[in-house]
Every structure is written in C-alpha cells, then in structure tokens.
Amino acid sequence: MYAQMIKSEATQDDPEKLAAFQARIDRGEKIEPKDWMPEGYRKTLIRQIGQHAHSEIVGQLPEGNWITRAPSLERKVNLLAKVQDEAGHGLYLYCAAETLGVSRDALTEMLLDGRMKYSSIFNYPTLTWADMGAVGWLVDGAAIMNQVPLQRTSYGPYARAMVRICKEESFHQRQGYHLLLKMMAGTDDQKRMCQDALNRFWYPALMMFGPSDKDSVHSAQSMAWKIKMNTNDELRQKFVDETVPQAEYLGLTVPDDGLVWNDARGHYDFTQPDWSEFYNVLQGNGPCNAERMAARRKAWDDGAWVRDAMLAHGQKKAARRKAAE
C-alpha cells in the first residue's frame, strides 16, 4: 500500500489512560489533535501518514515522466491534472501529519535521508504510454482498496484527508481504465503496449498491499487502534477479485498461470508475488529507487534558494510595514 510495513510503536503509558483511549476507539469516536493519545499511536501515525504523503509526492514522478509526451491535448490535460491531484494529496496528508507535531520540512528531510520510505510501486519505470493507463487502473486502484476503509480510521484529520483523496483516486482509476479501453480498441501496437504494461505492473501492484499477514508482526496493534482497517491478505484478495474481470473485459491476460476461480472459497486463487523482489525494492534495489530519490533530492536542493527568498521577502515586507506604521 502507500504505507507499507508500518511498525507500530510499543507504548508505555498509564494503563488507565490507555484503556480509556482504547474504549473511545472501540466506540467509534474520532481522536482529534488536542486529545490525549499514547505516544505509540502518535508515532505510528506519523510514520504511516508521512509514508503515505511521500508516496503521493514520489508517485508524481513515474507519471510526470509522460506529461510532455501525452499523445493528445485532452490526454495531456488529464494526465497533468491527475499528477497535480497527487501533489494535492501529498499536501493534505502533510497537513494531517503536522497536526501530530511534525513539520512538513522535517518529514521531507526524513524522506531524503532515507529514514522514511514511500511505496515500493513508485520504484518501477513507466516505459510506454499504456503505463499511464496501467498505473491509474492498478496503482490508484490498489490505493483505493486500502484508502476507502481508512476513511473510517480513528484519527480525525487522517480520516478526513482520506475522504477527499478517495474521491479523486476513484476518478483516476476510471480514467486509467478508459485510457486502456481506448488503446485496446486501437492498433496492434497499442494492444501490445497494454499487455506489456499489465505484465510489468501486475505483481508490483500486488506487492503494494505488503507481505502476508502471517509475516506482518505489527498489524494487531494498528488494527486495534483502527489505523489499519484490514489485513494485507484481505485487501490483496479483494483487489485480485475485482481486477481480474476488469482485465478480461479489456481483453488482457493477467500474467499468472496459477490464476483460477475457486468456487469453494468464492475467490480467485492466485500466485503470490516474488517477495524477495519486494524486499529488494524496499532496500533500495528497485529499478528506479536511485533515480526517484535523486529526482526528489534535486527538486528539494534546487528549490532551496526559492524557499529562502520567499521567506526573506516575507520578513522584509513585514519589517517595512512595521516601519511605516
């Protein structure tokens, strides 16, 4: 997911306060920034929301890669608006994280020096125009699986950010799907691009949900706190069940020989992604990790003089105003 493998922090608070806090969550109350919360809850949320925000921002890059090559004016506008939406999502989420007492700049520094992560999916390259369809359909689609339930998460500002974000994500997903539909009605080259995109993005999309729950040690606490709403395997299954018929409708083949409908379970059986690849990507060995980080660092470093100048101008202006009074 956009937030993968979030460790929940052990918490050492007063047991009575903890019990009262848990009871509020169990009753479905929202926790607001000024409310008492366990340190572990705060830290886990910062990590999760921060990682989610970073994913939106780094996620601009693989799609930004095609803005200048979009094949029609309408596609160019759609893609630019989509990537701009992702920047907006980043902004909402940084604001939500700031309510927990950590600044946007501090979070950015942590991304840039490697203390914080972003979703593994954005370390894969976008190679043809069909990837713009596949990313919308599969990546935004997988994000929605996780984010729709998070609209009910216990932390108020996070839940509210999710409500705004989910609307846009489902629009992105439809837009991506329609892009592929159009291409699949086109030339052989276009169809080939679509199948190639699905081949490359299928397993990375499944990895977005994180490793199997039996290997996920931190899920229980996060689920009790309602900052994780479903298990990784539940969400992955739901994604496969919804996506396979969509692929069939497009006329595309899901690149999994083990994919078969299981009547008894009422779900598709499918092959797990290669988890060693996933851990490699998390450790920095994905196809684009180095480039994504270099691009973010360059943007941040190149922008330093602008941020400094705006700050300085603001201060000078205030001083001039004061002097004039």
Binding site: Q60, G64, L80, A81, Q84, G90, A295, G303, V306
Partner: peptide, 21 residues
C-alpha cells in the same frame, strides 16, 4: 508542465500545473 513533480515547494508545483492546465 515540465515542472510538474519537481517544483521548489508543493504549493508552487500545484500552481504551475494550474497555469499550464
């Protein structure tokens, strides 16, 4: 539109994309 995703600060990134759009 070439600036999309690499602006000096998020708000400027969004504003440049708006103008481009």
């Amino acid at each position: 539109s070439e600036w999309c995703g690499v602006g000096p600060v998020l708000e400027e990134d969004i504003a440049l994309a708006n103008t481009a759009l």
